[in-house]
């Protein structure tokens, strides 16, 4: 049980490609942290460096008080759950879960007891003598979890553990993993490319892009005040509307349409961000939209259209009648985000 500290962790491959630019953050004890980003953003490499499966090119990694840069994965006091479960196909569930303990020369009686505890926790009692090939995807994932739990690690690492499951099972396992982590209180690092998983499971989210950390924050911070246009467009489905505009006389505006007061003495071209659900149809509203497409989602509707020639989406309740064509809408000025047009950084 421990805090994990990364200071200046970098990954540079021998061919000169930098997969992870210097990254520093610390994970307090018991926190569930999610690394999220598009594929190739370096999130998996980061996780694998923490696990010890990749060498750390520069920087220090501490798990607890211990510097673990050059310590073998087996001795880092971690447990990892892999995307394709990585169960040993020739071993029964019982042996799969107990294998790590057996290698640590723990007495068989104690192994049996720990395996029994883990299997009770994960509802695997009926499957202990089966081979992985006789289990469903969800059960295999639970076995992989069991293998992690029995080791009583200081740190759980999850590498996209749910992406091989179908959508329904994924929702269910998401809740199970989160509940289990709460219950065991083990510090966890979870890698995913699915922003719904990130939002629902994380205590804190780290959004990565092209090997750099874009933002670290709670799900609500990440969602409501994204630090960059990348975060704004990556998190949320549909993503935040990003409209090109400018700041004139302290007002953010698109063409002649004045939207809100700019925060500081900023000026010039800006990107104006508005969440689709923060725009509401309003006959007296200032926004003149032209709706081109209505998507029916049951509880909600998504309206896609344009505002002054720029694409825009709205998320409206099912109670609001919607059709294509012109629509007036309003928004709350405080929900608006402003980014510098050249750097993409929040103003």
């Amino acid at each position: 049980m421990a805090q994990v500290t990364l200071s200046g962790i970098t990954k540079t491959y021998p061919n000169g490609v930098t997969a992870v630019h210097p990254a520093s953050f610390s994970i307090p004890h018991g926190e569930f942290i999610v690394l999220v980003g598009p594929s190739g953003c370096g999130k998996s490499t980061m996780l694998r460096m923490i696990a010890g499966l990749e060498d750390i090119s520069a920087g220090d990694l501490h798990i607890g008080a211990r510097l673990v840069n050059h310590i073998d994965p087996a001795d880092r006091d971690i447990a990892m759950v892999f995307q394709n479960y990585a169960l040993y196909p020739h071993m029964s569930v019982r042996k799969n879960i107990g294998y790590g303990l057996k290698n640590r020369k723990i007495p068989q009686a104690q192994i049996d007891q720990k395996v029994a505890e883990a299997s009770a926790l994960l509802n695997l009692d009926d499957y202990l003598d089966r081979k992985p090939s006789q289990l469903s995807g969800g059960q295999r994932q639970r076995v992989a979890m069991g293998r992690a739990i029995v080791r009583d690690p200081a740190l759980f690492l999850f590498d996209e553990p749910l992406s091989n499951l179908d959508a329904k099972l994924r929702n269910q396992m998401r809740i199970e993993i989160k509940a289990l982590q709460r219950r065991l209180g083990v510090t966890s690092v979870y890698v995913t490319h699915d922003q719904v998983e990130a939002m629902t499971m994380a205590d804190r989210i780290i959004v990565m892009n092209e090997g750099r950390i874009e933002q670290i924050g709670s799900p609500s911070e990440i969602y409501h005040s994204p630090a960059t246009t990348f975060v704004a467009s990556f998190m949320g489905a549909p993503p935040m509307n990003l409209l090109h505009g400018e700041i004139l006389n302290g007002m953010a505006q698109i063409g002649d349409l004045r939207l809100a007061a700019a925060p500081k003495a900023a000026s010039g071209a800006v990107v104006i961000g508005l969440r689709p659900e923060d725009i509401t149809p309003d006959a007296a509203g200032p926004l003149m939209l032209d709706i081109a497409l209505v998507e029916e989602l049951g509880a909600h509707r998504l309206l896609h259209g344009s505002l002054l020639g720029q694409p825009i989406s709205l998320h409206v309740s099912k109670d609001i009648a919607a059709s294509t064509g012109p629509l007036r809408a309003s928004f709350k000025p405080e929900t608006l985000s402003l980014f510098a047009a050249d750097t993409g950084v929040r103003l």
Partner: peptide
């Protein structure tokens, strides 16, 4: 192979 490494094999 990686799972086995973490399992201390």
């Amino acid at each position: 192979v990686e799972a086995a490494r973490i399992d201390g094999a």
